[in-house]
């Protein structure tokens, strides 16, 4: 396995397979009465979150603790960045404390790549700007694979603000790499130029994208996008681009409904869909811990001999 997990582009098919397999093993640990193994005892994991996050940070923190690593977290507001320190200086200071793994969430694309170049410790990208969110994509893939057995040949629809979604980008790359067909839909203002170069199709309508889908992933709509002139109103968005039961009828009967959270109920997803029988939204959260445990273990030297093809 690589030193760093930065994006889905840099992971090989073999590496992805081994991460997904390892995650399945890790899930079992979380189901035990004593949810802790000593594997990473003595390792230091720093959770470095420049951007607010509840679920991802908690998920990484739980993952580290279940493997007996010492995890500490620094948030953007308490970090020295606020005091004018550059990311490079912060990196050098971190280095001096000899951490083993640094988990970085940052509002600028490429920040984890920058940190990885300057640190001996492993860097795991927990989301960088609108670029990548590889651990989210991996947990999405684990969740789908758990239900469908394989990702090969599946039709996956991703709906919403693709332009501002690192989740969408990482899933486009990841699912496509594993043999799924990814279709995107959303208002044209939210479809970034040249996204087809990731090997995905852009559907003219949401209905078209959902047609025959094995999995439908809805993306969070941020209210600020109204100011960016990317949409008119939430009301209109819900009507034309939101997921409701009627629209879902076009998908396969055993379709999976996903959402990376946090949801805007009634905007991009109807409550009856979010809480309905097709929803695997809470599985995603459970698998998030498992995937992050797998990654912590793999970058720490477990199974280093997986080929990078």
């Amino acid at each position: 396995m690589k030193k760093d997990i930065l994006d889905m582009d840099s992971l090989s098919v073999n590496e992805i397979h081994s991460i997904l397999d390892m995650a399945v093993n890790m899930r079992e640990i979380s189901e035990r009465p004593i949810k802790k193994v000593p594997t990473l005892r003595g390792k230091t994991v720093i959770l470095f979150f420049y951007e607010p996050s509840t679920r991802t940070k908690l998920s990484f923190d739980i993952a580290a603790k279940r493997l007996s690593a010492d995890s500490l977290s620094i948030s953007g507001s308490m970090s020295s960045l606020v005091k004018g320190e550059t990311l490079l200086d912060t990196a050098k200071n971190l280095e001096a404390m000899n951490p083993d793994i640094v988990i970085l969430r940052h509002s600028y694309a490429g920040a984890p790549h920058f940190l990885a170049r300057h640190l001996k410790a492993s860097v795991i990208n927990a989301g960088d700007g609108t670029h990548a969110h590889p651990t989210q994509a991996l947990l999405d893939m684990v969740s789908v694979r758990q239900r469908k057995g394989s990702l090969e040949g599946l039709k996956v629809a991703i709906i919403g603000d693709i332009a501002h979604s690192r989740v969408a980008r990482s899933n486009c790359v990841g699912f496509t790499k594993m043999g799924s067909q990814v279709t995107l839909a959303g208002p044209p203002t939210m479809i970034p130029q040249g996204i087809e170069s990731l090997g995905v199709r852009v559907a003219p309508t949401v209905d078209d994208a959902i047609e025959g889908a094995d999995a439908v992933m809805m993306l969070r709509i941020q209210k600020e996008r109204q100011k960016d002139t990317l949409m008119s109103t939430e009301r209109e968005y819900a009507r034309y681009f939101g997921l409701n039961l009627k629209r879902l009828e076009r998908a396969k009967p055993d379709v999976l409904v996903m959402h990376p959270g946090p949801m805007n109920r009634g905007v991009e997803i109807d409550p009856e869909v979010a809480d309905g029988p097709y929803s695997i939204i809470l599985d995603q959260v459970t698998n998030g811990v498992a995937v992050r445990m797998a990654l912590l273990l793999l970058v720490s030297g477990g199974n280093r001999n997986v080929d990078s093809d």
Partner: peptide, 12 residues
């Protein structure tokens, strides 16, 4: 702004 910016997640 183009396919590369889209892939790299940088504003174009």
């Amino acid at each position: 702004e183009g396919p590369r910016a889209t892939r790299m997640g940088l504003p174009g």
